[in-house]
């Protein structure tokens, strides 16, 4: 993770387009300027960033469903639960599954675990839209390479 740059996913571990599931790894850094303020002397991973990490995980699943033709944008959150504190250095396993592939939107369910224990979960809705421009699509493809997006999964799905 480089949380200052919103890089909250380290590696995609598994992606099954046909089944509509994804699993990623993410390790909370031991040091970050964010921890200087959240909270002084008591560093905790901000809950909003845990939510963002679930949104990014589910987002990779949805962008895969579109074959990188369109972009999912976070639209709504439901039933968000932040079950316990996450401290620097924690290894997270984040999963998401597709609940519904709608027309121009998708609804997913995502969850975070650490050492098999539930950390957070949420239902996440995305609007699916055209990329605003070619540069954003290119940036997403570059990010996909960084996190090991398995392009073969697109062919298999």
């Amino acid at each position: 993770m480089r949380i200052e740059y919103f890089q909250l996913i380290d590696r995609i571990v598994a992606l099954d387009i046909g089944a509509g599931t994804i699993c990623v790894e993410a390790v909370v850094p031991r040091e970050s300027t964010i921890f200087e303020g959240h909270f002084p002397g008591h560093p905790l991973m901000p809950g909003v960033l845990l939510i963002e990490s679930m949104a990014q995980t589910a987002g990779w699943l949805v962008i895969g469903l579109t074959r990188f033709e369109r972009m999912p944008f976070l639209a709504a959150l439901k039933e968000v639960k932040l079950r316990t504190f996450v401290t620097p250095g924690t290894s997270l396993s984040i999963t998401a599954k597709l609940l519904h592939d709608g027309s121009g939107y998708a609804i997913t369910k995502a969850a975070i675990e650490a050492d098999g224990k539930p950390i957070s979960d949420a239902e996440i809705t995305f609007r699916i839209m055209a990329f605003p421009d070619a540069s954003m699509r290119l940036a997403m493809e570059e990010t996909a390479a960084r996190v090991g997006f398995p392009m073969q999964a697109l062919a298999d799905g």
């Binding site: 639209a75 519904h100 592939d101 709608g102 027309s103 121009g104 809705t125 609007r127």
Partner: peptide, 25 residues
């Protein structure tokens, strides 16, 4: 439009269809 996504989701589920919202829009 955001609330209508929730409605569309519920309608899709209730009737086993996919409302073509993008086409309509």
């Amino acid at each position: 439009s955001l609330d209508f996504l929730d409605i569309a989701f519920a309608i899709d589920k209730a009737f086993g269809i996919k409302l073509p919202l993008e086409q309509w829009t």
